[in-house]
Computed example of a mutant assay.
Amino acid sequence: MVPVSVVIITFNEAHILAKTLQSVSWASEIIIVDSGSTDGTVEVARAHGARVLHRAFDGYGAQKHFAVQQATHDWILSLDADELVSEELGREIRELLRTEPPHRGYRFPISLVFMGRMLRYSGEYNKKFLRLFDRRAGNFTTDQVHERIQLQGTIGTLQQRVYHYSYENLSDFLEKQNRYSSLSAQKLLLKGKKASALKTVLRFPLTFLRIYVLRFGVLDGYPGFMWAMVMAAFTTTKYAKLREIALS
């Protein structure tokens, strides 16, 4: 089997990390880059055989780029600390890596689990992301947010999925998205984006309707309604912060 290194960046993820690491126990190596956790994350990682490195956080892209560089092997599986690889995807990856793969990278679906329910609608069920790749062909961009893998070569698609347990509860969501919306606003400002008062006001209803109606979030029940609402609030907050920065 072609060896694969799993790379994960962490900050206070002890509540979910053990399950994530158990889901990739078949990997040749697990690299954790931690940015100062105080909740036992490091201890959990080491207990599951991961190699733990410490690095001050200076953006999601730079942190992940660094993590990839620390791996022993060239084939990389990049996960967030709250993403669980399904048994089916694990088998699919191992089968793929029995020989040198024909593509330089592979996408697969990542499905969101929110408020205890996997959202099958709301636009969050079959979104595919490039996460398995040969680092000889590329690496993450160093953007603070919305980082992506830049890859030279062809990209294939795997069928099985990862389950994303992104938020422990609504309070956790609001805390994370407050930080993330600030970083996103800064990135928009660097791109020269502007946010008028009218467009900022319209962000909430338009985002809510897109997720809840056009993407059939209504079929996800109460979690679908809450997801549409909090994402509409996040988008509005991001542009409100952009407007605040621009006017300051």
Rank of each mutant, 00 (worst) to 15 (best):
N169W: 02
S25E: 14
Q160T: 11
M118W: 05
Y125I: 00
D134I: 01
L242Y: 03
V6P: 10
I76L: 01
F66M: 06
F129I: 03
E100M: 02
E95R: 10
G90H: 04
V201P: 00
P205T: 10
V2L: 10
L170I: 13
E43M: 04
V162S: 06
L84C: 09
R107S: 00
K64S: 07
S111Q: 14
E29N: 13
Q22D: 14
M115G: 10
Q150R: 15
L206E: 15
E124R: 11
M1F: 00
Q160Y: 13
L242E: 12
F11I: 04
L84V: 15
G221R: 07
Y165G: 09
Q22M: 09
I93Q: 02
L130P: 06
V145D: 09
A197S: 07
Q63T: 08
R117N: 06
A246G: 01
F204N: 11
A246E: 12
Q70E: 13
R243K: 15
Q144P: 04
V2H: 01
T235L: 15
I8P: 13
S86W: 02
T200D: 11
S166H: 07
G156N: 06
A45T: 00
R94S: 15
L53W: 09
A185S: 11
L209G: 00
G221W: 01
P102W: 02
H164P: 04
E175G: 02
D74L: 09
M1H: 05
L97H: 14
R179K: 14
A47R: 10
V6N: 10
T41V: 11
D82F: 02
K199E: 15
A195W: 02
R94F: 03
A67H: 13
V230W: 12
G49S: 10
L170R: 11
L96A: 15
K241M: 05
W227E: 01
D74G: 04
V52S: 14
A67T: 07
A233R: 03
E100V: 11
A240W: 13
F129Y: 12
W26T: 01
V42D: 06
E95I: 00
H164F: 07
L84E: 15
A197W: 07
Q69Y: 08
E83G: 06
E88R: 09
K19F: 13
A232L: 03
E175D: 15
L89Y: 09
T154W: 06
R55Y: 07
V218C: 10
